[in-house]
Design a protein around this nucleic acid. Structure first.
Lengths: 209, 209
DNA sequence: CCTACCGATCGGTAGG
DNA sequence: CCTACCGATCGGTAGG
């Protein structure tokens, strides 16, 4: 599935109640929830199947292995935002515009994500078969830091460290993953969403509007 | 062990080569490293004992259970900084002073930590027997946000969201845990350490010095 | 999507 | 700190 297909699929899931989701997506939902609570290794395939309401071996007619559930969640967590960051970084609008627009898209993507991505951690990229996501993570970072560097070069931004900015941004996305999502309270994360983008821009802009 | 004892113990570990550490600390070191790489559940007691160079059952003459290794690591990760934050928050110096001083201490604590704390995640607080650390996490947050609120009230700081500030700060600490420590490169984290404290203060201060 | 089942590995104990 | 070993649980397969 392409990035646009994944985005469209998420829209459809958001529009339907959980018990109307295809089994495959319900498996992904419960796998995400349990990996968030117990970690990837701590969430057993029996836990997942019980939550879905099927028997453990039935999982393997939807996914060839537990790892493939993780790979699918990783696409939502990482591949889609990386694609979006690359796309916005390549535009020619002022850096402040691009950075704000990306942050809004990013924070919104995670805040409205119907799957639970809290268990999808960077260390899992060391698991065999997940190495390819390391390249995507690096590409995301490169895209964001390119926007910051553009802004510094154009005199819009202070001479801040691009790495500090990308770090703070991904930390905030992660915090949004942690505090929002289906079934969790969104109020804390909505304060964060608005406050953080403003805070980051305030720290960067030479001319504070 | 009290907070001061833990701080002193860390100083001593830092001063000695790993192979001169007491077995108990070498176990903690390898447990931390492996939990960072594979998660708490993914790091088996056999993995840990092999890394230490002893047999698996020998671990249990140093720790009553695997969970107790986690509890000990949690003390370094959480109890010590919470104590320090509470202490600095209670002082009467200007908020900007206190905030900067705490950030310097905090970022330095994690940057020079000889144990690997990357596997010590907030979700683990839901494990049975670890609930008490939830209170410490809340106390840390309360202490930081009290400093920010003091600063806003005194007119030193903009009317920012205290929750956004504490979130950004803990995200940065976490990033330092991820990028520094024994055997990892410290250069990225030293940029972050200096840049982030400056960035946060710049975003807060009414009068940008 | 089910029942029946596999070999491997888990955390931990007994006893020295 | 060791050897020997425990019952429980793991991810996954066979065959319908």
């Amino acid at each position: 599935m392409s990035t646009d297909d994944l985005i469209g699929h998420v829209e459809r899931l958001r529009a339907a109640p959980l018990d109307r989701w295809p089994t495959r997506d319900r498996i992904l939902y419960e796998a995400g929830r349990l990996m968030a609570a117990k970690g990837y290794h701590g969430a057993s395939t029996r836990d997942i199947s019980t939550a879905v309401g099927i028997r453990q071996p039935s999982l393997f007619s939807h996914f060839p292995s537990k790892r493939d559930m993780l790979v699918e969640l990783m696409r939502y967590e990482m591949s889609v935002p990386t694609d979006k960051a690359r796309q916005i970084a390549a535009e020619s609008a002022p850096a402040a515009d691009r950075l704000l627009r990306y942050m809004q898209w990013d924070f919104d993507w995670y805040a409205r994500m119907p799957l639970d991505l809290r268990g999808i951690k960077e260390e899992l990229l060391d698991e065999p078969g997940l190495e390819r996501f390391k390249g995507e993570l690096a590409a995301w970072k490169r895209a964001i830091e390119r926007i910051v560097r553009d802004g510094i070069h154009a005199g819009e931004f202070h001479d801040a460290s691009p790495a500090v900015v990308s770090t703070m941004m991904s930390s905030i996305s992660w915090e949004i993953v942690r505090t929002s999502g289906l079934g969790r309270s969104r109020s804390a994360s909505s304060t964060l969403r608005l406050g953080a983008a403003e805070f980051i821009l305030r720290g960067l802009l030479v001319d504070r509007g």
